[in-house]
Design a protein around this nucleic acid. Sequence first.
DNA 1: AAAAGGATGAAGCCCCGG
DNA 2: CCGGGGCTTCATCCTTTT
Length: 614
Amino acid sequence: MVGNISGVDADNFDWDTEDDLEIDNYAVSSHSDLSIPCREAVLGLEEASSSGESPSSKLIDQFVGMGFSREMVTKVIEEKGEENSNLILETLLEYSASTLPSSSNSKMINHFVGMGFPEEIVVKVVQENGEGNTESILETLLTYSALETTAPIQQNADSDNFSSDYQGSFLDDFSDFDSFSDTEEVMSPASDEERKLLHLTKMGYSEAEASVAMERCGPDSTIAELTDFICAAQMAKAADALFPLEEKKPCGNDSNHKKRRNWDYDLLIRKRKKKMKLEKRFDEDDEAVHLPNPMIGFGVPTESEQSTRVLPEAAVGPPYFYYENVALAPKGVWTTISRFLYDVEPEFVDSKFFCASARKRGYVHNLPIENRYPLLPFPPRTIHEAFPLTRKWWPSWDMRTKLNCLQTCISSARLTDKIRKALEDYDGVPPLGVQKYVLEQCRKWNLVWVGRNKVAPLEPDEVEMLLGFPKNHTRGGGISRTDRYKSLGNSFQVDTVAYHFSVLKDKSPAVSICYLFSQGSEVRRSWWEQTNQRGTLVEIPDVQDLNGDRLEQLIKTYGGFDLVVGGSPCNNLTGSNRYHRDGLEGKDSALFFDYCRILDLVKCIMNGTRSMTV
DNA sequence: AAAAGGATGAAGCCCCGG
DNA sequence: CCGGGGCTTCATCCTTTT
C-alpha cells in the first residue's frame, strides 16, 4: 500500500528530550518514532485518493488560502503548470514582491502592520524607503519602535500581569534535575533560579542575558516570561545597533555570532508582535481557550461541515508547522502555546471521531483546512467493529461503544481476576453496585470482554491497530512489552493526523525525506533499520544542540524544511500525572519552548535565504 | 538487572437540580 | 447562580517478581 515515496517533501523532526532521561523519556521520544510511519501512511494513501477532483481549483484554493490573489494564482498556474507547486510558490512570491507598485502596496503595508508596527508609521516608512526595499523598511521600523518604547520595562509590567496564575505552582519545584544532560555536572542546582538559568542557557541565550532577565523579572517568573523578556531586550539592542546606520546583511557568512544575531533579530519582530497582540487583548477579556463540544476541531470526516479560517499573517509558512499536545492541559497552557505559535488558534480534536478510542488532543498548525480527506480504508469506529470477538462476552449493561484514551500503562492481571470474582457470584445481571465498580475499572483501564465474566487489557498489536499503525509496528526495535505500551501511549493517532496532513498531498513532487531525531537510542536505530524506513535519518542526541548553525547546515544540505512536526512531552500537563503536573514550565514539557526556538530559526533561515518576502 | 505490578489523586470540564 | 456529582486523563514512585 505504501508503494511510493513521492508525495510530500516533508521533514519531521523531534525535539523531544535529552538522551539521559532513561525510560521516561524514552517513551516520550518514541512518540515521534511512531509519528514517522504515520506520515508515510499519509503519503501512500494520498497517492491513492488524489485523482477525484480537479487539481487546479484545489491548487488555486491552496495558494489563495496563503494570501495570494486568485487572479495572480490562476495566472501563475497557467504559466507554470500545476505540477510543481514549489515553482508556483516561488513565482508567486516573486510577483508579490515585484508587482508592489499600486495594488500590492497595501499588502506590503499589511505585512508590516501584521508584525505589530503602527499603520501610519509603516505607511510613512514605506514611502520613504521605496517599496522594493523590504529590508531597509524593516530596519527603519525597528529603529522607530525602539525609540518609541523601552521594551524591557514594559515587558516587566506585562509579565506580572500575565503570569499571576502561574506563579504559585513553580516556586518550589526544585525537584530532581536529572533531565539536563551531560554538559553540566550531575549535581542538582541549588535553586529553582539556577534551574531556569540553566534552561535558558541551554536554549541558546547567553548567561548574561539569562541572569539579567532573571533579575528583572523576579524569581517567580516563568520560562515563558523570561524568554519574552530576553527577546525584548535583544530587540532593543538590535535596534540600538542600527542607530549608527550600519547595514545588516541578511545572512552574513562571516562569524557565527553575526548570523545568530540576525536570526534573533527577525525573531524579535515576531515576539514583539505577540506582545502587542497580548496587550490589545488584555482589556477585551480573559480569553480562556475553551474546548469545543463536540471536539471536532475544524472538522472531521464524519461531520461534513467545512470550516474556514484566516491565519494570522505571521503564521503563514513556509514552513508548515504542526504542534501537538494533550487537550486537557492545566489552565492557561494552551493560551501560552498559542501565543508562542503566532497566535494560531489550536484545533482540538478527539480521535474518537476517527477510530474506536478517544484521544483528546490539541493541534496548533498552519496547514490549510479546506479539502481535507480521510485515510482509507476507514478504521473501525466502535469497539465491536474493532474487536468482534468481544461481542459474545459483552454484557448488556456495559454501554461503552468507544474506548477511552490509550495510555502508557495497562492494568495488571490481578485486577481482571478481581473483577471476575466480583461477577462470578451472580448468574445473570449483577447488582448495580457491582456493575458500577466493574464499569469504573473498565473505563479506567480500557478493559474489554474476552470471556465469561472476564475482562482483559488490550494487546500491543490491538493498540497499534486502534492508533492506525500496522500490526507489530512497535515490535521492530525488539523492545519489551511494557515499552511497547509506553511508546504507543505517547503516539499520534494516525488517521487523525493523516486527515490534517492530507492537504499536503498536492504540495510538491518527491524530494528527499529527512527525519531528525533528537535522541539517538539503540532502540530507535534498530527500529529504523528493521522496519525499512525510507528517507534519511539524522540523529541529534540533544535537541539543544540543534542551534541556528546546525539548522542552517541541514537546510543547505536538504534544501529546506517544508514541515516542522512535533509534540513536546506531556507528562507535566496530563491529568494522569500525580506528582509533577507543573504545566508548561515543568522540566520536560518546557521543551515546548525549544520547539518554538527551532521553528523560529527554521522560519528565519528559510525566509532569509528566499529574499525577505513572505 | 530488567520487567511487571500496585498504590497513589487532582484538575478541570460538563451537567443537572435546587 | 451555584454547588455537587460524574467523568476523563500521551503518569510516577516504589515494591515485587522474573
